[in-house]
Measured scan of single mutants.
Amino acid sequence: LVRYRTISKIPQITLNFVDLKGDPFLASPTSDREIIAPKIKERTHNVTEKVTQVLSLGADVLPEYKLQAPRIHRWTILHYSPFKAVWDWLILLLVIYTAVFTPYSAAFLLKETEEGPPATECGYACQPLAVVDLIVDIMFIVDILINFRTTYVNANEEVVSHPGRIAVHYFKGWFLIDMVAAIPFDLLIFGSGSEELIGLLKTARLLRLVRVARKLDRYSEYGAAVLFLLMCTFALIAHWLACIWYAIGNMEQPHMDSRIGWLHNLGDQIGKPYNSSGLGGPSIKDKYVTALYFTFSSLTSVGFGNVSPNTNSEKIFSICVMLIGSLMYASIFGNVSAIIQRLYSGTARYHTQMLRVREFIRFHQIPNPLRQRLEEYFQHAWSYTNGIDMNAVLKGFPECLQADICLHLNRSLLQHCKPFRGATKGCLRALAMKFKTTHAPPGDTLVHAGDLLTALYFISRGSIEILRGDVVVAILGKNDIFGEPLNLYARPGKSNGDVRALTYCDLHKIHR
């Protein structure tokens, strides 16, 4: 019993810090008490220290592992850092350059016999395009090294910054494609005289377009951006097909006994025919423009016929181009109408809503002055909100995010209106959640004399007048207030005048 009563005193000691020596009952000389009392004092002292730490809000209350900052290894790049964003855009520009100039170089340097010394005699450094290609190869190699040090988000939505895990993730992902696209074939085969082989191998750079397509997928929600990307894709495919079309004609031209190829026909049409040795002929500019003209006309199913396939190889390629053109029509131009419709969806919704308003007016036989006010209010409210119901949009977000959005939407009023000066951010967040926005066209009466005042109004834009009878008592403008002081009276009061809008007004109100 003594032991039980001794232990039962522990909660009292913990909360009230009572010393055991003052209790005459606990001072009985028993061996059990002498053993338990020192333990009680020690526990009391420890609990006292913990309570003191909690009340003082000291940093040592938290466990040590929670006080440590997340460790980022040296030379690790955050995937959302500004440097990584700028670097990704730079790589994107280099990939676009590669997609345009690599097929052009591979096709127009394929057994090209233009006048001038061969590239091997001039030297590697004197070729501007080769120098640019070398810079692109170096940048792609540097990009691989950067990807080995860039964080990523795993399946659990955690940012991984450990170098080993980053390397394994990159090896399992895009490393092989990036490595093949970054191989400097110019340096590996330079001086061997195989410019045709170098041009063909350099087309491996186009593998990076797969990554670019995935990154550009984030802009699919913007109709104008999608339309622009589709047109660029169409032009890029036409450019690639033009390079292939020229390569076919250029390879067949020296081996044909009869002059029936499209390059021969082009030379005869523009007065620059090929001679018996295969030299001469149109310039590279004429060849490229004509090839691009043929691919565009074939892809769009126009086909004027002034550039036509004559050999079997050219006919087979033309059939493939027609098939590609039909697929592009289905996948690209078939979506253009939907994209344009999405661009004008706001206008369509406006006309639909206006039609419903006019049908309501016609069905209920609203008189002319009231009908005009109804239409003007709808037009003004639509121009202010673009038909978007803010309350319906915010309803799907958590309250903390709703408060931040409301604070942002009402920031101008909260910053410049005098009653809100000096208020804490928590108070402003709470008030912003209570605001209701209303609009009024010129001549609209917001409050009639004798109406119950259940709200306090803040003028965000425009001006109003307060009338008693036919006498203008006051004219209020931006950041002015009218209405009933909230919670100042037990019952809502009545208006002693009319409140009429002089201009288009936007008002925020808080109800009782």
Rank of each mutant, 00 (worst) to 15 (best):
E64F: 01
E64K: 12
K66R: 11
Q68Y: 06
H79F: 01
S81R: 10
P82Y: 15
F83R: 14
L92W: 07
V95Q: 01
S105Y: 07
K111M: 11
K111Q: 03
P117F: 06
A119D: 01
C122Y: 01
G123A: 06
Y124E: 01
P128T: 14
P128M: 07
P128L: 14
A130W: 11
V136D: 03
D137F: 01
I144C: 04
T150W: 01
T150E: 01
N154I: 10
N154A: 11
E158S: 09
H162V: 11
P163H: 03
V168C: 11
F175V: 01
F175L: 08
I177A: 10
V180Q: 01
A182P: 01
L187E: 11
L188Q: 06
S192H: 14
I198L: 13
G199I: 06
L200P: 01
A204S: 05
A204V: 07
L207F: 09
A213F: 11
K215A: 04
L216I: 14
G223Y: 05
A224E: 09
A225D: 01
F228V: 11
M231D: 01
C232A: 11
T233Q: 05
L236A: 01
L236F: 01
I237P: 01
H239P: 01
A242H: 01
N250K: 14
N250W: 06
M251Q: 03
M256S: 15
D257R: 08
R259A: 15
W262Y: 01
W262E: 01
L263E: 03
H264K: 06
H264R: 06
I270W: 03
G271S: 01
I284N: 04
Y293I: 01
S297G: 04
S298C: 15
S298M: 14
V302Y: 01
P309R: 06
M322P: 01
M322S: 02
G325R: 01
L327D: 01
M328G: 05
I332K: 03
F333I: 10
S337D: 01
I340L: 04
Q341K: 07
S345L: 08
S345I: 09
T352F: 11
Q353G: 08
L355D: 13
L355F: 15
R358S: 10
I361V: 12
R362C: 02
L370V: 01
R371M: 03
F378R: 04
T385N: 15
I388P: 04
A392V: 08
L394I: 08
K395R: 13
P398M: 01
P398Q: 01
Q402A: 03
A403M: 05
I405E: 02
C406F: 05
L409Y: 03
H416N: 09
A423Q: 05
K425P: 12
C427N: 01
K434V: 05
F435W: 05
F435N: 03
K436H: 07
K436A: 09
V447A: 02
H448F: 06
